[in-house]
């Protein structure tokens, strides 16, 4: 995909998102029931209630913020019961929860799949039961109603550019990475490495270590990396928790201001750290908004006005993002911070 296409997709994404929100608003405020021939106000009887649920990967700031965004949109529609379910970081638990929701006759299922292939049979099962599935961040190999994703690859490319600029285009960087086997890890790592190649070919990745998405683990790992690479000039944490772990180490060793540290996601703690001048930057995505987009699409699908099968192919929305640094972090409003 070229840069131009990427921009185009980005704009398309924004437009699709706003259209979905608008359509949802229409669905929210008109009480017409598209599935029955009778027009007029629908009584909100108990039998009429729709159930929607979000199966998250495991408790974390990102799915928690999605869930909050989803809830914001859904709770204004008083006929929808919404529930957050925990996948406990196990594919088999997610599969079991999918089946329970299908059995309950859920109207829409939001899913953050742990694995793209492993959840595909469950998504196929949901489709057979006429239940639209909307995936968040990790796509599934089985086509489904819609997919709303952070822009991992291009975001990481932009991080590489910003990080390289700060380092003056040369030096050594380390990556604090997620455990293998997750698509996001590959997209963010590849985006970062490709970005360096394209914008700053003189910067070398001297270390790429697994720190389990975790702040404490990242501290230990970075300390070890620094022993072997005392000249390290930059660190990329594949999520903010790991980047903040790197900040902890830099503080302890008096490297704040000398070492360039970037994270990814844009959670509240990271933004505060940027404002304090500790963390250099991060890729910020409005995760509340991502949840709202998903909920908006779900509303449209659940009213039955537009069934999931009416779409020739799966809807796909890439979230807009901002590379937040000390200069730009002020643009992010308090209500957008998660």
């Amino acid at each position: 995909m070229t840069e131009l296409e990427h921009r185009r997709n980005f704009i398309k994404g924004v437009m699709l998102g706003s259209a979905a929100l608008g359509a949802a608003a229409a669905g929210m405020f008109s009480d017409t029931d598209a599935t029955s021939p009778k027009l007029g106000v629908r009584p909100a009887g108990a039998a009429d209630r729709k159930k929607m649920a979000f199966i998250q990967w495991q408790p974390h700031t990102v799915p928690a913020a999605w869930s909050k965004g989803i809830e914001e949109v859904l709770k204004t529609q008083q006929t929808i019961d919404y529930e957050l379910l925990d996948g406990q970081n196990k594919v088999e638990v997610q599969v079991s929860l999918m089946e329970a929701l299908i059995n309950q006759g859920a109207s829409v299922i939001f899913l953050q799949p742990i694995d793209s292939v492993a959840l595909a049979p469950s998504i196929a099962k949901a489709k057979r039961a006429d239940i639209p599935v909307i995936t968040l961040n990790i796509d599934a190999t089985e086509a489904h109603a819609a997919h709303v994703e952070m822009n991992h690859y291009y975001g990481a490319m932009d991080i590489a550019k910003a990080l390289g600029d700060r380092m003056g285009g040369k030096g050594e960087v380390a990556i604090l990475n997620a455990p293998p086997g997750i698509v996001i890890r590959d997209q963010r790592t590849n985006g970062f490495v490709d970005g360096l190649k394209q914008h700053h070919p003189d910067i070398k990745v001297v270390s790429d270590q697994v720190a389990d998405w975790d702040r404490k683990k990242a501290q230990d790992v970075l300390n070890t990396i620094l022993v072997a690479n005392p000249n390290l000039g930059g660190v990329y944490g594949v999520n903010d928790s790991m980047a903040l772990g790197a900040v902890d180490v830099a503080k302890e060793k008096g490297l704040i201001g000398k070492m360039v540290i970037f994270g990814n996601d844009g959670e509240k703690d990271a933004l505060e750290s940027i404002e304090k001048g500790e963390l250099t930057g991060t890729q910020y995505t409005d995760v509340y908004q991502q949840g709202r987009f998903a909920a908006a699409a779900a509303t449209v699908l659940a009213t039955g006005a537009v069934p999931a099968s009416a779409f020739g192919e799966q809807g796909r929305l890439l979230m807009p993002y901002l590379i937040a640094t000390k200069e730009t972090v002020g643009e992010i409003q308090p209500a957008q911070r998660w």
Binding site: N89, I114, P180
Partner: peptide, 9 residues
């Protein structure tokens, strides 16, 4: 059941 195997299985 999953049609795949993952590292975290």
């Amino acid at each position: 059941r999953l049609t795949t195997a993952t590292e975290a299985l």
